[in-house]
Amino acid sequence: MKMLAMDTTTLVMGVAVLEEGKVLGEVTTNLSKKHSVRLMPTVDALLKDLDLPIEKIDVLAVTDGPGSYTGIRIGVTTAKTIAWARKIPLYTESSLTVLAMNGLHFSGLVVPLFDARRQRVYTGVYRPDHQHLTEILPQRVMPIDDLLGHLAEHTEPVLFLGDDVKNFQEKIICQLGTRAIMGGPAENIPRPSQLAWLAWRKMEQGIPSASETMTPNYLQLTQAEANLLQKQGNGECLNGERRTD
């Protein structure tokens, strides 16, 4: 059984093929170049290298956010269309969880983050435990100060992951001192093979695959919707936590 996984939620574009417990191939770039142009040709090239026609792919995986809204939609649209056309199941994963997997063997807390602008981050807090990540702060968009305030309540070392961590480095060190550990270059990019592994485990656990009407997890309303809600006087509630599916 072979799984094709793709991730276009951030500047990193990743495509991987997993067979049972083995990564057959993986392409990752970290470039400000259009995912819309490069995703399909990259998938095509990787499958050709592996001598795998698309007919040989049994299952798909894609990240459904958070990240760049456009990037999320390119990956999700591409993956769910292939899944529908080939009549194969599609599994979705959070891009933050995929990134957090790079800290799976860290003893302490793992914090993946993406810059959400205006001093806010897309983030979640994880505790690695026997090959699994336990989410101890559910994914959300939040002010960096609130995140650091939350982390200050813990005593363990904290591993920060993601290329955007450097945007907040000073604040992090100021708050957490030597408890803060920054990921290295290889750990700071989400790996499509980790996405594939996460999805594979979902599949093995018998968790249902995503449907054709699945929607991305942007973690934020659009500005227009937020304004409208505010006008109607109930602005808070919808802007918070990640929907669970």
Binding site: Y69, T70, R73, V76, T77, K80, T81, W84, E212, T213, T215, P216, Y218, T222, Q223, A224, E225, L228
Partner: peptide, 24 residues
């Protein structure tokens, strides 16, 4: 209509929800 015009981000979000179902 509730926004008084097409909001691009709202439109994109709707498209991604509907596209596969509409093709089907």
């Amino acid at each position: 209509r509730q926004f008084g015009g097409v909001v691009p981000e709202v439109a994109s979000r709707r498209h991604v929800e509907r596209i596969t179902v509409v093709i089907d």
